[in-house]
Write a protein that binds this DNA or RNA. Structure first.
Length: 87
RNA sequence: UGAGUCGGUCAGGCGGUCGCGUCGUCGCUGCUCGCAGCGGCGCCGAGGAACGUCCGGGCUCCAUCGGGCAAGGUGGUGGCUAACGGCCACCCGGAGUGAUCCGCGGGACAGUGCCACAGAAAACAGACCGCCCCGUAUGCCGGUUCGCCGGCAGCCGAGGUAAGGGUGAAACGGUGGUGUAAGAGACCACCAGCGGCGGGGGUGACCUCGUCGGCUUGGUAAACCCCACCUGGAGCAAGCUCGCACAGCAGGCGUUCGAGGGCGGCCCGCCCGAGUCUGCGGGUAGAGCGCUGGAGUCGGUCAGCAAUGGCCGGCCGAGAUGGAUGACCGUCGUCGCGGCGGCCGGAGACGGCCGACGCGGAACAGAACCCGGCGUAUCGACCGACUCAUCCA
């Protein structure tokens, strides 16, 4: 799930992204690994995020078992929806 | 070729005999019938630090409403990481010709304390030897109208000064001049340093340029302290499951007038609450799980200066519980020493290389829940990068 908000109305500052990976996803090791994978996935899609925007990416419990490609598709879907809702 | 700096790898190989532990398997014996004991066979069986237990995490249980005061830790900046007191990069200061190394690197105009020895004086100014001026006992010299006058030295008294001297780890800016009775940032020039303002570069520590100003401010915070940030407690004997055993007695304080407990430092505040505490006496001290494949490691690739991270693929046979992993022999390799033989260099003394032989050495040290670091110990062997000097092309 991806939440988005325009916190810098001028749209100059680079976009900021935060991650929420709760205890429901797994233990400390699983949660940290999930965060790292999500971070690298988002880094590859930074061009599609408008400047001045803040994102919060929340990991569902299924994210722990998902493969890298599955995570990528799901993030893509949520990201386009969240960005479209901004406009 | 010599001298040096930094980083990394390995931790003797092979074979044999005896011994130990987990697991598997076969046989015998026992019974509570799926375990125990004994014996045979087979596989596997410590480390780079397994160590110290100095930090940080995972994991487990307990607690989790809030406020205040303590306590402990960290300390340039930016990043990495699960986290750190770790690592990487950079800044500043110091050492080195250099590669590089070292730093316990916030604040000394918030306050308090301390600064040994030496020195006059150690933090706020003061003045021991000095230097100078004035008054003046006295002495000497010169002049004299014999009243004294001038000069020099100087006891004592009052004052000016901090340039010079010596001490120290450190002495109230440095050098040169002006100035003065002697001197002094009193004034001037340059330099160092401090502060203000402005321009430029950098995410930042900070760097750099210009300009102005009083001319100048000691050290110590691993002394208390101040500032910023961080920290719930206990630990695998954690903890979970199964099984087994027992017997109470006496006393204190208590049941909305509340004992006791929790918020593991204290106080407030909040919550639970009918039992609880002490002494004597009695009982059980068995088994299993946790227990080893994990923030693992190697290669490739992508991002990054790097630490590190993403993706893809490969690899990974200790698990004891009074605690196993040991001892000996053979052989090969390696290092040191000894004499012997050969070759080379040299006038020689001697040095270097090779060969076989003999003797000797091979460290530090050992799992106990698991990781990331740090620190310490270590006979040696090897590899890579870089620096300086000299020579040759």
């Amino acid at each position: 799930m991806v939440h988005a908000a325009m916190t810098d109305s001028v749209g100059v500052r680079a976009p900021r992204v935060g991650f929420v990976v709760s205890k429901a996803v797994g233990g400390a090791v699983v949660r940290n690994r999930t965060t790292r994978r999500l971070r690298s996935l988002v880094a590859a899609r930074l061009d599609g995020i408008p400047a001045g925007c803040d994102l919060v990416v929340r990991a569902a419990p299924a994210a722990a078992a998902a493969s890298f490609d599955e995570l990528g598709h799901e993030l893509e879907r949520c990201l386009t929806r969240a960005v479209a809702r901004l406009r």
